[in-house]
């Protein structure tokens, strides 16, 4: 099975695993805007989220960005390593993910952008 990778206008990436598990992180664009990361506030596993809920906060020295879920569901895992090393977020999808969510409604990802649409979206943001 091929992993599906999608993006939100709030600069989160979503990777779909095993049909109904969404792995969520923040994109390079968001990482660049934040600069040096100093802290990630993580949620607890088991929490139920509705689409659009804030579930984490990524902090740099000067600013803090909330991370929102584009899908509804229950948090099944959090990336604990980020508590000690927030900069891991920037390393790779495998190391920098924030949460895994078991989706209630996998159709919700249909509205999200694919790679090309997101690249275009970011270019527009810069102008």
């Amino acid at each position: 099975m091929v992993d599906i990778l999608k993006y939100t206008p709030e600069h989160e990436w979503i990777k779909i695993e095993n049909d109904n598990i969404a792995v969520i992180g923040i994109t390079q664009y968001a990482q660049d805007a934040l600069g040096d990361l100093v802290y990630v506030e993580l949620p607890e596993t088991g929490r139920k989220l509705s689409k659009g809920d804030e579930f984490a906060v990524v902090e740099s020295v000067k600013t803090a960005a909330e991370v929102y879920t584009p899908v509804s569901g229950e948090i099944t895992a959090i990336n604990d390593n980020l508590s000690n090393d927030p900069e891991l977020i920037k390393k790779s999808l495998a190391e920098g993910w924030i949460v895994k969510i078991k989706m209630d409604n996998p159709d919700e990802i249909a509205d999200l952008m694919d790679q090309d649409a997101y690249t275009k979206f970011c270019e527009e943001q810069d102008h």
């Binding site: 802290y39 902090e59 020295v61 000067k62 600013t63 803090a64 909330e66």
Partner: peptide, 11 residues
């Protein structure tokens, strides 16, 4: 400082 009003405003 990110906890503070001049950055977090409503939060």
């Amino acid at each position: 400082n990110t906890r503070e009003q001049h950055i977090r405003r409503e939060k």
